[in-house]
Design a protein around this nucleic acid. Structure first.
Length: 599
RNA sequence: GCCCUGGUAGCUUAAUGGACAGAGCAACGGCCUUCUAAGCCGCAGGUUGCAGGUUCGAAUCCUGUCCAGGGCGCCA
């Protein structure tokens, strides 16, 4: 059963209900069984606007019940029967039964005005669902301190941010969470290198994250050259574990440097967080929790000869291996990611007991890990464990399917990407709009660059590997964010030329052209697509719709003159342009991309 | 060995089990004294990896197989 909100039909709920009742009457009168599942779809022909349904399922049901029929023919018969009985409902201009489908074409006058008026009334709220009164937490980004922030880290940050924006628009109360990897062997290696070779060196004013990453790479190099030095690293780890004041103080100070660098980057990217967690804070609760699991008999303590483990499949009585074995504490008693993840989930639900979902935006390589963690929590008796969701995404690779690695020096740093993209966008603004002020040119360049960077991260299936290459990243044409921004700019440009205020209500509606119908149709789908995207955690539905709407507007722009049109047409077109500008701005906002006025 | 993803035009990709598989890039040919050409139009380009099956109907579901990537008790 398809949810009713699918395909933006939310705007026409009342009409649809009435029609469904009439269809049921037809079925009863003709002794046709009423099908279990019923679905409406938009009419898929460009420039045609309306709703459509098919009767294959009903006919197939009759065939299964023993009737000797040709399903295709019978379905068409039923479609014709229903269409006849239905007549022409109010608000529709045409009803047809064709190829077993019944197509109901909207009467453009009434519906187009309704769509345009709704957008212009609701403005930046257009598309948003009513509050669901439910809270959802989304954890995303999860950068490691003392390391660089590269393009590969971008997907979680941007995907998570956009998922949050979509959930908020859909009517959820969203808690945006980050989870810093601020302790672990990588951090200690960094500290070791700093203490031995850079003690008291201050971080640079700019590009702190790059510098942190450089020192980390240096540490790795030194340790590779002389593996014996690992002993020194382990000594520092022990000192940290035992709360040695010198090590802890240095750790806290340097950790702040990374966090400051991340804050700067999140500010540039316009990616906010509400609750910050770190694995250092989950470490001690994690160890305590492991102890509880041992006492409950869920975990098996093999120390000192082995680690603490949970034999999940055995606990569940599974014959085939599925969840396998999860190691939750090292044999030397130090914590693992799993230790901390168990505790963190508990912390989240004790802070927000009403979470209906706790989402983890983490790359796909950790799928098994999260299944294990969630299942272990379930075994421990926490009913909220089933509300934990791993939202996996594929990683960002370099051309040739090469994974970025700091050690290989193949990483593309976020700072560099933003700088390059902005410079490129700046050149183009200079060509297109030389008369703008320097400040405006810079702002626009920044908006275009960030849009171009963000869009490809959310405009593909989460489960598909993204490939980063400079050429594509710096291409501002075609199916990309600048195309959508440009459509917004053009709409704005028409409206700016108005001498008087936009006429607000009851613009007369004339016989609309296909380009106009297409545009209105797409705008009307926004509320439904937001719900669908939220239900499936799929940003792709929004990028698709944003691109299609921009494309429809470009068609309209080319085919339908606005300012030079005669009075009646002009009035409605102006409203349509205003509605489109609003719709595009709202869609871009959902993607965390700014909508420039000029570019 | 077991498990999870993906495989659609030269490249990047879209498509709720449904009406002719839709775009962008690249190539080629057009369109700026007309609301910004970061645009538009045209032209091409596909046995949806392969083989079976389910279904009235399969890119989509199932089975097998090939290719690519990933995961699998003390990495994160």
């Amino acid at each position: 059963m398809l949810p009713l909100f699918t395909f933006g039909l939310v705007m026409f709920e009342t009409e649809k209900k009435r029609i469904e009742e009439r269809i049921q009457e037809t079925f009863l009168q003709n002794e046709i069984p009423i099908p279990e599942d019923w679905g409406w779809a938009p009419i898929p022909f460009a420039g045609e606007w309306g709703i459509s349904t098919s009767f294959f399922k009903v006919a197939a049901q009759e065939a299964r019940a023993g009737k000797q029929i040709n399903i295709g023919q019978r379905a068409q018969e039923i479609a014709a029967l229903v269409a006849n009985h239905l007549g022409l409902p109010e608000g529709f201009s045409r009803v047809e039964a064709v190829k077993a489908y019944m197509n109901l074409y909207f009467s453009s006058a009434e519906y187009s005005r309704r769509v345009v008026d709704t957008v212009l009334t609701e403005q930046d709220q257009f598309g948003n669902g009513v509050s669901k009164g439910e809270r959802v937490m989304v954890e995303y980004s999860q950068p490691n301190t003392h390391k660089a922030f590269h393009v590969g880290h971008l997907r979680s940050a941007i995907l998570g941010d956009v998922v949050c924006r979509i959930l908020e628009a859909a009517g959820y109360n969203v808690v945006r969470a980050n989870y810093y990897g601020d302790i672990g062997l990588h951090v200690i290696r960094w500290l070791w290198n700093y203490m031995r070779h850079h003690m008291d060196e201050p971080p640079p004013d700019r590009d702190v994250t790059r510098w942190m990453g450089d020192l980390y790479a240096e540490a790795t190099r030194r340790l590779e050259e002389d593996p014996d030095l690992e002993a020194e690293v382990r000594t520092i780890y022990t000192r940290w574990d035992q709360d040695d004041p010198e090590v802890v103080a240095l750790w806290e100070k340097t950790r702040q440097w990374s966090l400051r660098g991340f804050d700067d980057m999140y500010a540039v990217l316009d990616i906010p967080f509400e609750r910050l967690y770190s694995n250092s804070e989950a470490e001690k609760p994690g160890k305590k929790f492991v102890q509880e699991l041992i006492e409950k008999g869920i975990a098996l303590d093999e120390r000192p000869n082995g680690p603490v483990i949970v034999k999940i499949d055995e606990q569940l009585g599974l014959k085939k291996e599925k969840y396998r074995v999860l190691v939750i504490l090292r044999s030397d008693g130090t914590a693992l990611y799993a230790t901390e993840d168990l505790a963190l989930a508990k912390i989240k639900f004790s802070e927000y007991p009403d979470l209906v979902k706790s989402v983890y935006v983490v790359d796909v390589r950790q799928s098994l890990h999260f299944q294990q963690v969630f299942k272990t929590l379930e075994l421990a008796g926490y009913d909220w464990a089933t509300r934990c969701v791993h939202l996996p995404y594929e990683i960002v690779n370099l051309p040739g399917n090469v994974t970025m690695a700091s050690r290989e020096g193949t990483v593309v740093l976020l700072e560099d990407l933003i700088r390059e993209a902005t410079a490129r966008a700046r050149e183009i603004v200079e060509q297109k709009n030389p008369s703008l002020s320097e400040a405006d040119k810079n702002t626009i360049a920044r908006q275009v660059a960030l849009g171009a960077i963000k869009y490809p991260m959310v405009a593909r299936e989460n489960t598909k590997v993204a490939t980063f290459d400079w050429e594509t990243a710096l291409d501002f044409e075609g199916q990309a964010a600048p195309y959508i921004q440009y459509a917004h700019v053009r709409a704005n440009s028409i409206l700016r030329k108005l001498e008087h205020a936009l006429p607000v209500v009851n613009a007369p509606v004339y016989e609309l052209s296909p380009a106009e119908v297409e545009l209105i149709d797409l705008i009307s789908r926004i509320p439904g697509e937001i719900q669908r995207a939220a239900a499936e955690y799929k940003t792709l539905h929004i990028t698709n719709l944003a691109y299609q709407t921009a494309k429809a507007f470009s068609d309209f722009y080319n085919q339908c003159p606005v300012l030079s049109a005669e009075e009646d047409i002009r009035t409605f077109r102006l409203q349509l342009v205003a509605a489109t500008r609003q719709a595009l701005a709202n869609l871009l906002a959902l993607l965390g991309i700014s909508a420039p006025e000029v570019m």
